[in-house]
Write a protein that binds this DNA or RNA. Structure first.
Lengths: 340, 340
DNA sequence: TACATAATTGAAAGCGCTTTGGATGCCATT
DNA sequence: AATGGCATCCAAAGCGCTTTCAATTATGTA
């Protein structure tokens, strides 16, 4: 069933049917009703490819999924996608996902953009001085960046959380509890959020005249394995840190295992604060020692970005170009006063 | 730059340029060279929407992502997607993801199919007597089902793992270790794999004249929370089970917490075997008590399905219609002889 | 009553590609 | 010289939609 057949069936022109379907005001309400009724009965669906060719709009937003054989797939990606989806489903948008080697992200993003398959782009996994920004600006296609790019002029549309503030606050809390020996389990060095979180910690420590020693910082993939390894390393330090900041609840999982294996008690011997993206299968509140976290929902961020992206494509009013979300600092049992 | 402009530039017809680009044999090699050269110089890219409208082929495979506000996003989905992606990236295919309310999956799948945006469908989260099968058959679009539909004639293309066999073998192992009181922590009742796994357990028990008591079975979302709750319930039973089968390592996480909290020792007081989809952030081998599992990589399954789907679209030879993968039973420390 | 105006509808021209159904010219055969 | 086959190429007809421009009818105004 296509437009032509439908219009013949109704004894109307394609023009009128098309208008009725797309909510144009110049069609008689009675006619529109008739058309809508026929659509319901026949199950007619406009062919998207044709629609796209005619309008230039695809009703879809594109994103690059970093993937490669052996490449760790990322829980955060799925969660974020769920957020995007939640919003997209309300506007009959869909996603076009271009899988790409992580080393090939710039090219993949360009391919996606000029493929003509998408109306807007979503960009994540931002790095410091991210090379994709220049490319995006040259593209004349709407986009929103999740995160920011440290070192780049902040003149691009983004939604980010206040990573520096989050870790600054977390560190301050630990300082107030009397801790003086700190360690940071962070994500990969080149990623923007890792840079900012580190800065947050350093800034808070500096106010007390403390510094973050090089051997008290780990940069690694945010897996529980890496968490275990990093924590084991920390615990073997001659001057063992008592306060640990951690970039992910996934990593914290491994870290906690290391603490337990060392026979230490979380919240007493070791205080731990992790950043919580509100992942579905990791509830810090139900850890055996509930985990103090800086919290910000990845999923909510996804939904908001979808909203901005779709709104822009549909020309539905202006959106703020830059948004910086505060995180919540939620104190639970994994933090306590420094052991004397 | 479009085909018309390019062909004018070259002094050729659109026909010839199109053929040169698409590898048709009836164009002079010299001409083809000239065209390819011009493409390189002008950066011409064919408009996908037009291509699609003309050919009906989109170079993409479609899938429905169950999502709704408040709906738990699923780690397995992301991992599976990574597998699909790994293969798709090699063939310049992409995905079109249609987010949909879980209650609306049949309709969503149909929308996706007739949208003209996809060449093939991937279908997951199969249920017993799944209503989507009939719809898919009527569709004349290639598809592959991940899993099967219990109770339906197995005449559709699928890739599944031998869920029944996996849990049968796991149960037998526990029986050999002397266990007699079993419990099963399963996924939602209506899902196909849950049905088959349960059957596997029941079959193995039956051989020894044992039965699976109703209060020793839990059907729930496969989250760590539900795992915790289910295990707590099991442990409070008057005749406490000593052998637990679990449908997911995520769930096992919570279950293990419950065991620890009850002051029991995993692998001694309680033996546990879980099914391992090889999720990136849950390594059963590095649990504090390494976990005995039935293993089958979700990601590998994704890649294989992508291969079949893309191959079918490209008419690249026939693929087996039905595949049933064996799982591996990997024995680690979470299983031990029944306590006396 | 005559005319301007608003409300509705349609014909047809694209959108950028693929593909059918010829053309055209060239060569080897009869 | 007439024939057929082959290698190349092209004009034009779609694919299924949107949108411009125009036509038609109904309504209101002086």
């Amino acid at each position: 069933m296509n437009l032509k057949q439908l219009s013949e069936l109704l004894g109307l022109s394609q023009t009128t049917v098309s208008r009725a379907l797309n909510g144009y005001p110049e069609v008689n309400e009675a006619t529109r009703e008739r058309v809508l009724q026929a659509v319901k009965e026949t199950g007619y669906r406009p062919n998207k490819a044709a629609q796209r060719l005619a309008t230039g709009k695809a009703g879809s937003i594109g994103l690059v999924m970093p993937t490669a054989p052996g490449h760790q797939s990322d829980v955060h990606f799925g969660e974020f996608l769920a957020g995007l989806g939640e919003e997209a489903v309300r506007h009959d948008f869909h996603f076009v996902i271009m899988p790409a080697d992580p080393d090939d992200e710039v090219a993949a993003l360009r391919r996606l953009a000029i493929s003509g398959n998408v109306d807007a782009l979503f960009v994540a996994y931002m790095r410091g001085h991210d090379p994709r920004l220049a490319m995006l600006k040259s593209l004349s296609m709407p986009y929103v960046v999740h995160g920011r790019s440290f070192g780049a002029e902040p003149d691009y549309p983004y939604l980010d959380i206040d990573n520096e503030g989050a870790f600054y606050d977390a560190t301050r809390l630990l300082l107030q509890l009397g801790h003086t020996r700190f360690a940071l389990m962070n994500g990969p060095t080149h990623l923007d959020f890792a840079i900012r979180r580190r800065n947050g910690v350093i800034a808070a420590l500096a106010e007390r005249g403390l510094t973050l020693e090089e051997d008290c910082v780990s940069h690694a993939l945010m897996t529980d394995e890496q968490g275990l390894l990093a924590m084991e390393r920390f615990l073997q330090l001659p001057q063992r840190p008592t306060a640990i900041l951690c970039s992910s609840t996934v990593m914290a999982l491994g870290a906690i295992r290391a603490v337990n294996q060392a026979g230490l008690r979380l919240g007493e011997d070791i205080s731990l604060i992790a950043h919580d993206d509100v992942l579905p299968l990791l509830k810090p509140e139900s850890f055996s020692v509930p985990l103090t976290t800086t919290r910000s929902s990845l999923r909510a961020a996804g939904a908001r970005i979808a909203q901005r992206l779709i709104g822009t494509v549909k020309q539905a009013g202006p959106f703020p170009e830059q948004e910086l979300w505060k995180t919540e600092l939620i104190v639970r049992a994994s933090t306590g006063p420094a052991p004397s």
